[in-house]
Amino acid sequence: MMPRQVWTFDPQSGGVKIPPALQPEIRQRIVEHADKHYSGKFNRIDVRFRGCFCYIDAYVEPFVAPDFDSEALGITAEEYRERLRNTPVHLCRLRHFGEEGRWSMAFYTYSQDKYEPSFFDNGTWFGTPEEAFDTSAVYLEG
């Protein structure tokens, strides 16, 4: 006898393409939330869309040690600082399921160098883009 296949919902697969008409509203919500709650912790926020995904990155003011050795890297401290200013800090990737508030999240893990499924701070697989920002803002606390 063959085992029965059981359908289970996976919040980290599937999804619905984010309509182009919705993208500016989502971007604005995320940026306004970041400005209101995390002002001064980043230079700018980048929100981009691809299919069912919404990627959130931050650009931060880098720390460069006072004893920076420009000869070792072949660039000045200011050139190094500018390079880091233009390197994004990946925060998270949202997956859209078509219904308002029906987003899952994958947190960017630098130890694995990839997006990993994550619960929202509300303890569930689903939340809003603003809640995803709050969950992943740990990278802005440094």
Rank of each mutant, 00 (worst) to 15 (best):
M2T: 11
M2F: 10
P3H: 03
P3W: 10
Q5A: 11
V6Y: 13
F9E: 12
F9Y: 15
D10I: 02
D10A: 05
P11L: 05
Q12P: 02
S13H: 05
S13N: 13
G14H: 02
G15V: 07
K17P: 06
I18R: 00
I18A: 13
P19H: 07
P19K: 14
P20L: 10
P20S: 13
A21D: 10
A21F: 08
L22W: 07
Q23A: 02
Q23W: 05
Q23G: 12
R27H: 10
Q28I: 05
I30N: 07
I30W: 05
A34P: 04
D35L: 09
K36C: 06
K36W: 02
H37N: 14
K41R: 15
F42Y: 15
F42W: 11
I45E: 00
D46K: 13
R48W: 15
F49P: 08
F49R: 07
F49T: 02
F53Q: 08
F53S: 08
C54P: 10
Y55G: 01
I56W: 12
A58Y: 11
V60D: 02
E61S: 14
F63P: 00
A65T: 09
A65H: 01
D67R: 02
F68C: 06
F68M: 01
F68Y: 11
D69F: 00
S70Y: 10
S70H: 00
L73Y: 00
I75E: 15
T76N: 09
T76L: 09
A77N: 06
E78L: 05
E79A: 08
R83L: 11
L84K: 14
L84V: 05
P88T: 05
V89W: 10
L91F: 04
L91P: 09
C92T: 08
R95A: 03
R95L: 09
H96C: 15
F97M: 11
F97I: 06
G98Y: 05
E100W: 05
G101Q: 03
G101D: 13
G101S: 07
R102N: 01
S104A: 13
S104G: 04
M105R: 06
A106P: 01
F107D: 15
Y108V: 01
T109D: 13
T109A: 14
T109N: 10
Y110M: 01
Q112V: 05
E116Y: 00
E116M: 13
P117L: 07
S118H: 14
F119W: 07
D121L: 08
N122S: 15
G123K: 06
G123N: 14
G123C: 06
F126N: 12
T128F: 04
P129C: 04
E130R: 06
E131W: 03
F133C: 00
D134C: 00
T135G: 11
S136I: 06
A137D: 09
A137H: 12
V138P: 01
V138Y: 09
V138T: 09
G142T: 09
